[in-house]
């Protein structure tokens, strides 16, 4: 199914049966079966078949099944797309997207595969991972390239290398890229997903980074280990106070609509539409965190 939240997108190495059999138990918002970096060139065929067979026969529940295919300039992309669309992938995540043309070309492949296997055209969504300086500069054109595109993601490892720097604790080297990506995503009305945090032993560092990107406006983060999921999801979990306020805002908006009143007011103050939208998102996040956002309390 298509995710409405993507706080965490969990990578699962595509050629590892132990790691792709049940990643959904860790509760990510999306699973990304990886056919790209975690798979050596000699094993591309085997990984593609393994993910295909797994998706065909295992029940991943109500969690978005994404696949990171190989790049547009590789000999594997056509087979990857055909196999994954047939296998039932909800989303294709394209690595090393450089410009809108890449996404348009990918969309054509996806559409051909949808038609060939009888899936409704347009069902498979796309996400682009931006990994180089040019990609970041093209963030907005990529974000608006096709109607299937639901988000753009930062992939920092290649990016910092291209930028002749390396990753640091405070992430200053990514500041511009993150800023542009989140700005482009918001302008285009798609999601912004942050890069992975690779030091598995540094939970404090992950927590700091997750707080930073949430504050910057990102929707979520790609993660490489299931143990990172509760930490990142925790950052996106609204506080009880936020939930209480949001619930009152949403209730006031519903009441105004029911009475056919254009102006929403709460405690004698007028409430703007953006505040209502933000409140609705807070309740979405709260529900995803397992909180009861009871109708009964309205």
């Amino acid at each position: 199914m298509i995710a409405t939240l993507r706080r965490t997108m969990l990578f699962a190495p595509g050629n590892n049966p132990a790691l792709i059999k049940d990643p959904q138990i860790y509760g990510p918002d999306s699973i990304i079966f990886d056919l790209e970096d975690s798979v050596s060139p000699a094993e591309k065929d085997a990984a593609r078949l393994l993910v295909f067979c797994a998706m065909k026969s295992l029940d991943y529940g109500r969690i978005e099944k994404a696949v990171r295919v190989n790049g547009m300039d590789t000999p594997w992309i056509r087979d990857d797309v055909e196999a994954m669309v047939r296998a039932g992938a909800d989303l294709i995540r394209l690595p090393k997207a450089e410009c809108a043309r890449d996404l348009v070309a990918l969309e054509a492949m996806v559409e051909a595969a949808e038609v060939a296997c009888g899936r409704p055209v347009g069902e498979v969504r796309l996400m682009a991972a931006l990994e180089g300086p040019l990609a970041v500069l093209n963030a907005y054109e990529i974000a608006t390239s096709t109607r299937r595109l639901v988000g753009i993601a930062l992939s920092a490892e290649d990016f910092v290398t291209s930028m002749k720097t390396s990753r640091s604790a405070d992430g200053v080297e990514l500041f511009e890229a993150r800023g542009r990506i989140v700005l482009a995503a918001r302008a285009a009305g798609v999601m912004a997903i942050d890069t992975v945090f690779t030091d598995l032993s540094d939970e404090e560092g992950l927590l700091r980074e997750a707080r930073l990107i949430k504050q910057m406006g990102f929707d979520g983060k790609s993660v490489i280990n299931p143990a990172q999921i509760p930490i990142v999801n925790g950052v996106f979990e609204p506080t009880a106070d936020e939930v209480r306020k949001a619930r009152r805002v949403v209730a006031a908006a519903a009441e105004a609509e029911a009475r056919g009143v254009g102006v929403i007011s709460l405690d004698g103050k007028m409430i703007d539409k953006p505040i209502v939208e933000r409140a609705a998102r807070v309740l979405d996040l709260a529900r995803a965190s397992g909180a009861k956002v009871g109708e009964e309390e309205r």
Binding site: K21, D45, A46, L49, C53
Partner: peptide, 11 residues
């Protein structure tokens, strides 16, 4: 699992 056996035989 069976799906893995299938994938490896196909490959």
């Amino acid at each position: 699992l069976d799906c893995t056996i299938r994938a490896r035989v196909l490959a």
